[in-house]
Structures are given as structure tokens and as C-alpha cells.
């Protein structure tokens, strides 16, 4: 078996190249994130119609769904980056995995908190130990575990390896979160967006939601690149190119 990867894949392995390319990409993602999130939140919070049963409390969906989706996507990225780092010994992959963890943990907290705030008036309870809510809480604990493991070792490489293994093991939780509402009886409702079907809400409700989701992805890219760039500089601080960079400022 011989796998040939495109050139950019190998270039990604170079911390310096990563630093250069992200400095070009970062402003574009920042602009996109700002625009989409402003449009999405104003549209969703002020102009989208209220729900016939829940009234205005349904509007928390415009924060809850994007953060919940992102918490899971971020975990996938973290685990895959960790795996690439383990197999190919690519430094940048470990930097990305490390930078993902705190962002994903914050997204998971946001999803859990907004869900609880919505759950109280709608369900009548802040928290219920159903499969969806519990697996989401497990996701948050996995993030905390990855963060703790990364910094638990004296050698950066050991911490990276341990965290990557935990992230890879924890990836089984992702399909559990996704399908928990279908496999078991849960209080949490089914997915709002499905790949195969039209969303079960009118377009004036789901278009702002879609804008918010894309906006959150751009925002995530901005956060991830900023964190990863700082981490690259920190880890490469003894190399000539970083010294040169520091001298210039």
C-alpha cells in the first residue's frame, strides 16, 4: 500500500509554513465570522418568527445548535489531528490538537448551559440524565481530560502523545451523541438539521440558523489559528526564523 499525499499536506508539517499561511488566512476568516454572526444573530433574535408553542424562548436555538455542532466537530478535528501527529510525527498536528481542546471545551459548556436555560421553561427541568445530555457531558469531560493530559508531562512530546491517545479513544462518544436521540428514548428532541431531509421548520427560521452555524465555524477557525500560531511560536522559540521574527518587532 502506497499512499501519496498532495504537496500541501507535507508543507503543513512545517511550522514556519503553517505560521505564514495562517497569517494570510486569519483576517478573511475574522471578517467572515464577524459578518455572518452579526447577520445571523440579528436575524435570528429580532426578525425570525417566534415558535407557536415555545414563543421567544426557542430563539436560544441560534446559539445552542451552533455551539453543540461545533463542540463535536472540534472533537473530531482534535482526534484526527492527534492521530496524524502520532502516525507521521508531525509537530503542527499536535499543536492543532492542543489548540482545539480549550475551544471545544468552551463550546461544550455553552451548549450545555444554553440547553439547561432552554430546558427549564420548555421541559420543566434544568437537567435530565437522558442519553443526549449525558453523552454531551461526557464530551466536556473528555476535553478536560485532554487538556489535563497535554500539560501533565514534563516533555511536550509525551503530553502530546498521551492526549492524542485519549482523544482517539474518546471519539466513540461522537456517534453516541449524534444517534442518542434515535437509539434510545430521550427527552431531547431529534436533530434540527438532517442531511437527507428538509429541516422541520420554515425557511425564515432555519436560514438564520444556518448562517449562525457557518459563522460559528469561521469564528472557530479564527480562534484555532490564533491559538495554534501562539503555540507554534512558543514551541519553536529556539529556531532561527522565530528569533528573526521577534527581532523584527
Amino acid at each position: 500500500m502506497k499512499i501519496k499525499f498532495p504537496k500541501w499536506f507535507y508543507q503543513l508539517a512545517s511550522p514556519r509554513w503553517f505560521y505564514d499561511i495562517t497569517s494570510k488566512l486569519l483576517p478573511w476568516f475574522a471578517i467572515a465570522a464577524l459578518l455572518l454572526m452579526v447577520i445571523g444573530s440579528v436575524w435570528g433574535l429580532a426578525f425570525a418568527p417566534a415558535d407557536y408553542q415555545q414563543g421567544n424562548s426557542f430563539r436560544i436555538i441560534y446559539i445552542h445548535v451552533p455551539t453543540a455542532i461545533l463542540a463535536q466537530s472540534c472533537y473530531m478535528l482534535m482526534a484526527i489531528a492527534g492521530g496524524i501527529g502520532l502516525i507521521w510525527k508531525i509537530k503542527v498536528a499536535h499543536v492543532i490538537a492542543k489548540s482545539c481542546a480549550p475551544i471545544g471545551a468552551s463550546m461544550a459548556v455553552l451548549a450545555l448551559v444554553t440547553g439547561a436555560i432552554w430546558g427549564k421553561p420548555t421541559w420543566g427541568a434544568w437537567w435530565v440524565w437522558d442519553a443526549r445530555l449525558t453523552s454531551m457531558l461526557v464530551l466536556f469531560f473528555l476535553y478536560i481530560g485532554v487538556i489535563a493530559l497535554t500539560s501533565a508531562f514534563e516533555h511536550i512530546a509525551s503530553g502530546d502523545k498521551a492526549a492524542a491517545v485519549l482523544a482517539l479513544v474518546g471519539i466513540v462518544n461522537i456517534p453516541i451523541i449524534k444517534y442518542s436521540v434515535e437509539w434510545w428514548n430521550t427527552l431531547h428532541q431529534g436533530a434540527t438539521f438532517k442531511v437527507t431531509e428538509k429541516p422541520a421548520m420554515p425557511s425564515e427560521m432555519w436560514i438564520p440558523l444556518l448562517i449562525m452555524i457557518i459563522g460559528f465555524y469561521c469564528f472557530f477557525a479564527v480562534l484555532l489559528m490564533s491559538r495554534a500560531r501562539t503555540e507554534v511560536l512558543r514551541r519553536e522559540s529556539k529556531t532561527d526564523w522565530v528569533k528573526l521574527l521577534v527581532e523584527r518587532y
Partner: peptide, 9 residues
């Protein structure tokens, strides 16, 4: 229990 169907009044 709420379902995934939302609609305007």
C-alpha cells in the same frame, strides 16, 4: 417533551 418541529404561530 418537545419535538424538532418548530413553526411560527
Amino acid at each position: 417533551k418537545h419535538d424538532e418541529n418548530y413553526m411560527p404561530p
